[in-house]
């Protein structure tokens, strides 16, 4: 079949570049895979030992908590602010379209670059944020945004919110455009105020789009790597470590590839659970 010749490379690509790595990582999670494995080619199967050791790692519990807080905080704020901006930009006003497309610029920049810019802004001694807070007498001494174990997770979460706002805004803006204007007119005739129109018309009709944005947002947020690495590298003392950066740290810093793979597999598991929930929700909505 000639048709098959055109799609065969893509199938092969899926097998070699997605299925094979995924299978490799699942397998490595059950192997004692260390740096010597690369030289000797030997990585004995050890059952669930990697998982037991990872669970017992003193950094693990904190990492899970961080991942939940980072993900929940990012999703909530990205979505809230993205929705507010989408509603704002939906009204027509001069230059609205141009401003809206310029808002996307931060989204297109390499995250390493914007992360570096934020690191400079949040710098304890000469960063502009602390300078401004000090000048306004809002704080009495510089705040160690990235250098304190209490604040680092909040700081990386807020920067990640900044990264995610444009994505949320674009998709939600598209969703808002699809709501027929007559519905708002009818609601207005029935005496519904602005807030009621938002609650009774916008939110229910936006639900399918909301599900998509939040599920994709969740899967993307679990994968966030660049922002955390550039800002804090998961530190200080693992205070901003998430499962993704933890997996990197285990594999590529501590060279315990079996452990890193085990944590990676946990991430896959979480993503699969939510993806299935998402597909189910998708099927239920007509």
């Amino acid at each position: 079949m000639r048709k098959l010749a055109f799609v065969a490379p893509a199938w092969l690509y899926v097998a070699v570049f997605y299925l094979y790595p995924l299978a490799t990582n699942v397998r490595m999670g059950f192997q004692d895979f260390t740096v010597t494995s690369f030289y000797t080619g030997v990585a004995p199967f050890v059952g669930l030992r990697n998982y037991r050791e990872v669970f017992r790692d003193p950094a693990f519990a904190g990492t899970v908590t961080n991942t939940v807080l980072f993900t929940a905080g990012s999703l909530l704020l990205q979505f809230g602010i993205g929705l507010a901006l989408a509603v704002f930009f939906k009204r027509n006003f001069p230059l609205g379209g141009a401003l809206r497309s310029l808002l996307l610029v931060p989204w297109l920049l390499p995250l390493v670059v914007s992360g570096t810019a934020w690191r400079w802004i949040l710098e304890t001694d000469s960063g502009v944020l602390n300078r401004t807070l000090l000048n306004l007498h809002l704080v009495s001494e510089p705040v160690p945004w990235l250098a304190s174990t209490d604040l680092s997770l909040t700081a990386v979460t807020l920067v990640n919110v900044w990264v995610g706002i444009p994505f949320n805004m674009v998709i939600l803006y598209g969703g808002l455009q699809a709501i027929p204007a007559e519905l708002y007119e009818a609601a207005q005739l029935d005496g519904a105020g602005a807030w009621q129109r938002f609650r009774r018309v916008t939110l229910p009709l936006l639900r399918p789009v909301t599900t998509v944005v939040l599920t994709l947002g969740l899967i993307y947020t679990l994968k966030v790597f660049d922002v955390i690495m550039v800002l804090t590298q998961g530190g200080p003392a693992d205070s901003s470590q998430t499962l993704t950066t933890f997996s990197y740290d285990l594999s590529f810093q501590q060279l315990a590839f079996g452990h890193g793979a085990a944590v990676g597999n946990l991430l896959v598991l979480v993503a699969v659970v939510f993806a299935i929930g998402y597909l189910r929700a998708e099927r239920r909505t007509p």
């Binding site: 790595p21 990582n25 679990l222 793979a261 990676g264 991430l267 896959v268």
Partner: peptide, 14 residues
């Protein structure tokens, strides 16, 4: 949707 770190682990080995 496969987390990049999972792919990176396997790509490094390969």
């Amino acid at each position: 949707m496969i987390p990049g770190i999972v792919m990176a682990n396997a790509f490094y080995v390969a």
